[in-house]
Design a protein around this nucleic acid. Structure first.
Length: 596
RNA sequence: GUGCCCGUAGCUCAAUCGGAUAGAGCACCAGCCUUCUAAGCUGGGGGUUACAGGUUCGAUUCCUGUCGGGCACGCCA
C-alpha cells in the first residue's frame, strides 16, 4: 500500500533537513480546502523562523524541492504560507487498485495490537425499564468497542448490573402489597416494565404517606424518614442482606423478570456483552478490600464507626467507603468490581467505564482510591464520560415520568420506517419478513446515527414531538446511498459485466479522486476516533463520503460510460465505497440494506 | 459556598495540536425525475462563534474576567 501522508511526511522532512538543516519530528498536514487545488496542505509558519525565510518563500522552496525529487507528485501551489500539494492521478489509481487486490477494509487485523481492553457499558438498575439515557450509553459503549476492535485491540464488553439495594426493595415491597401475584405472563407485560410499574406504585403510596404525616403536623424531613413504607423497605433490605429465604426468592424472581425484559431490549438494540457482573456478587470483595486497606492505613475508622479515606491532599474530599453499621455504599462495590475484573482478566491493559458525566467526581475518587490501595493498573482505568440526553423541558427524571422509554422509542422508529418505506413504494419483490427486517434496519439506523453523530462529551437534545429525520445527515440517507451503489453493481452483473476487473483508467476526475481519498482516510479516521473514544468522528466521515458519492452519482454515469476502462474502474471504486460505508456503519452498530 | 463542564445560523450539530473566506442538515425560497433508486442533486437567504480584554504571523480553539445554563460536592445509587 502507498500511504500518502506517510510519504509526504518523509518528503517534507527530507526537504527541511536538506535545505535548512531542520529536523522536524512530526509534520502536521491538513486536508486541502476544496477551494484550492491539492490533496494535502502543509502550513509553513511554524518553520519560517528556523529556516530564516518568509512563510510563502519557504512554502515555494519546499514545494519545488519535493516536486523535482519525488515522482509521485503532480503539482503544488502556494497561498500565503500554505503549501498545497497534489499527487498524480496515477498515485491514487494505484492506491485504489491495491486496496482492491489487498481487500482493504480500513480495519486492522483482529487482536493484532497486543492490547486487551475491558469496556463497561449499560450498567442498569433492576428496578425500572431502560430509557433514552440508557440508549445513548449502550450505543456509545457498543460503538466504541467496535472501533477499538477495528484498531486491532482485543475488547471484552462487560455489563455491571446494579441488582441489589434499596431501589429494588421498593419494587418488591410494592409488589407484595399491591401486586396480587401479578406476573409478566398474567399481565402480558414485559418484566422490566412490570417491576418498574411497582417502583412507581411505591413512590405514589410513599408520597401519600408523607403528605398524611405532614397533615398531622410532622415536618417534611421527619415524614420522609419515618413513613411506614420506607421503614418497611429498609427492613426488607436488611432481610435481604441477612439472606432471608423468602426475600431472596422474591428478589430472584423479580430480577429474573427484569433480565428477561432487558434481554429483549438489548436484542432490539443489537448490543451484547461478553461478561456480565452483578453487584450482589462483587460488593463482598469490596468490603473485604476495605478491611484490608484499613489494616494498611489506607483508610481509617472514625469515632462514629464509619470507615473513610481522606483525599483532601489530592484535591478531593473525605469519602465514606463503609457505613458505620458495616454495610457497603455505592463506591464499595465499585472497588470490588474493579479488582475482580483485573483478577478475571490478568492481561488487561485498560478498563473503560462508560458512565454519564454526572459521575465525573465519583470516578476521580474511585480511581484515586484504587491507586492508594496500590493497584498499578489504577492508572489504566478510564472514565468514558458522556453528556446527558435532555428533553426540551430539561433533564429526564424517572420518578416524574418525564422519560422516553427505550422500548416505546424503538417501536416508534420501526413504525416510522415502515410508513416512510410504504410511502416511497420502492420495495416490490420484498417478502413480508424481508420488509420487517428492512423497517428494523432503517429505524435502528436512524436512531443510532442520530445519537452517535453527536460528540459523546456533549449533552444532546431530543425532542419527542419532532420525530427523528430520515433525510439529510441521517442514518437512512447513508443506508440509501449504500443501496444505490448495490443496485448499480447488481445491474452490472445482470449485464454480465465483471465488477472486479482491475483496470487502469489513466486519469480520474475530481470526484473520483475525492472518493479514493475518502477510502484512503478511512483507516486513519478509525484510529482518530479510537484515540478519543468518539464514534461521531466516524459518523461525520461516512456522511461526507456519502455526500460526495451522491454528487458523483449525479454528475457521472457509471454503467452508461462509453470508455470501458473508466466504466470498469468506476465499478471498482463504488464497490469499495460501498464496503467503506458498510464497514463504517458497522462501527456504529448500524446495518446497511442491499435494497431500500 | 467550592469544584467541573458547556455557550457556534431560527432549530439540531460540525470545524483536523492554534490555520486559509466558521461548515452541514432541518426549516424557508427557487430549480432538477422519457437517463444507474428524487430517502437524491443544484442554487439562495440566514453568523460581531454569549460579552470584554489578553497571548501571536494567525483565536470558535489557549489565558483572565463578566453574564447565562448544566452537573457534582450524601453513611443515595
Amino acid at each position: 500500500m502507498n500511504y500518502a501522508l506517510k510519504l509526504l511526511d518523509e518528503q517534507i522532512k527530507d526537504a527541511l533537513s536538506t535545505l535548512y538543516k531542520i529536523n522536524a519530528d512530526k509534520i502536521p498536514f491538513q486536508k486541502t480546502r476544496k477551494e484550492f487545488p491539492g490533496d494535502y496542505t502543509l502550513t509553513t509558519f511554524a518553520y519560517s523562523k528556523q529556516a530564516g525565510k518568509k512563510p510563502d518563500e519557504l512554502a515555494q522552496e519546499l514545494g519545488e524541492f519535493i516536486l523535482s525529487k519525488y515522482n509521485n507528485l503532480d503539482s503544488f501551489n502556494v497561498v500565503k504560507g500554505f503549501l498545497n500539494i497534489r499527487f498524480k492521478d496515477s498515485f491514487w489509481i494505484e492506491f485504489l487498485l491495491n486496496a482492491v487486490s489487498e481487500n482493504y477494509s480500513g480495519y486492522k487485523k483482529q487482536n493484532s495490537s497486543g492490547k486487551t481492553i475491558l469496556l463497561e457499558y449499560s450498567s442498569p438498575n433492576t428496578n425500572k425499564p431502560l430509557h433514552l439515557g440508557h440508549i445513548r450509553n449502550n450505543l456509545l459503549g457498543f460503538s466504541v468497542a467496535e472501533i477499538l476492535k477495528a484498531c486491532g485491540h482485543k475488547v471484552i464488553k462487560t455489563n455491571i448490573v446494579n441488582d441489589r439495594g434499596i431501589h429494588i426493595c421498593k419494587s418488591m415491597l410494592a409488589w407484595q402489597k399491591f401486586g396480587n401475584g401479578e406476573t409478566p405472563e398474567s399481565s402480558n407485560m414485559k418484566g422490566d416494565h412490570l417491576v418498574g410499574k411497582y417502583y412507581v406504585e411505591f413512590d405514589k403510596a410513599y408520597k401519600k404517606e408523607i403528605n398524611d404525616l405532614i397533615a398531622k403536623g410532622i415536618s417534611k424531613e421527619e415524614a420522609e424518614k419515618n413513613a411506614p413504607l420506607i421503614l418497611e423497605a429498609q427492613q426488607l433490605l436488611l432481610k435481604w442482606e441477612k439472606g432471608d429465604k423468602e426475600t431472596i426468592h422474591l428478589w430472584k424472581t423479580m430480577n429474573g423478570w427484569v433480565y428477561k425484559g432487558f434481554d429483549e431490549t438489548y436484542k432490539s438494540l443489537g448490543v451484547d456483552f461478553d461478561k456480565i457482573y452483578y453487584e450482589s456478587d462483587t460488593y463482598i470483595l469490596g468490603k473485604e478490600t476495605i478491611n484490608e486497606g484499613l489494616q494498611k492505613n489506607v483508610f481509617y475508622k472514625k469515632e462514629d464507626g464509619s470507615i473513610r479515606i481522606d483525599l483532601t491532599a489530592d484535591g478531593l474530599d473525605e469519602k465514606v467507603v463503609l457505613r458505620s453499621d458495616g454495610t457497603s455504599v455505592y463506591i464499595t462495590q465499585d472497588i470490588g468490581t474493579a479488582i475482580l475484573r483485573f483478577k478475571d482478566f490478568p492481561d488487561l491493559t485498560q478498563a473503560i467505564y462508560t458512565v454519564g458525566n454526572e459521575q465525573d467526581y465519583h470516578f476521580k475518587v474511585l480511581f484515586k482510591i484504587l491507586e492508594k490501595l496500590g493497584y498499578s493498573w489504577a492508572k489504566e482505568c478510564y472514565h468514558l464520560s458522556y453528556g446527558m440526553v435532555e428533553l426540551p423541558e430539561g433533564k429526564m427524571k424517572s420518578r416524574e415520568g418525564t422519560v422516553v422509554d427505550a422500548d416505546e422509542l424503538l417501536e416508534e422508529m420501526f413504525d416510522t420506517a415502515k410508513k416512510t418505506t410504504q410511502e416511497l413504494g420502492k420495495v416490490e419483490g420484498f417478502s413480508e419478513s424481508n420488509l420487517v427486517e428492512l423497517h428494523k434496519t432503517i429505524g435502528l439506523g436512524a436512531l443510532k446515527y442520530f445519537i452517535l453523530k453527536v460528540d459523546p462529551k456533549k449533552k444532546m437534545l431530543f425532542d419527542p414531538k419532532e420525530s427523528i429525520d430520515f433525510n439529510g445527515n441521517t442514518g437512512p440517507f447513508i443506508q440509501y446511498t449504500h443501496a444505490r451503489i448495490k443496485s448499480i453493481l447488481r445491474k452490472a452483473e445482470e449485464q454480465k459485466i465483471n465488477i472486479d476487473k482491475a483496470v487502469d483508467p489513466k486519469t480520474i476526475n475530481t470526484l473520483e479522486r475525492d472518493l479514493i481519498k475518502f477510502i484512503y482516510e478511512f483507516e486513519l479516521t478509525i484510529e482518530e476516533s479510537a484515540q478519543v473514544y468518539n464514534p461521531a468522528i466516524v459518523a461525520n466521515f461516512i456522511y461526507e463520503l456519502t455526500k460526495t458519492f451522491n454528487r458523483f452519482y449525479h454528475e457521472h454515469s457509471i454503467l452508461k460510460e462509453d470508455n470501458k476502462e473508466v466504466l470498469q474502474f468506476r465499478l471498482l471504486l463504488i464497490n469499495k465505497c460501498a464496503q467503506v460505508i458498510a464497514n463504517g456503519m458497522k462501527l456504529m452498530g448500524i446495518n446497511v440494506p442491499e435494497k431500500m
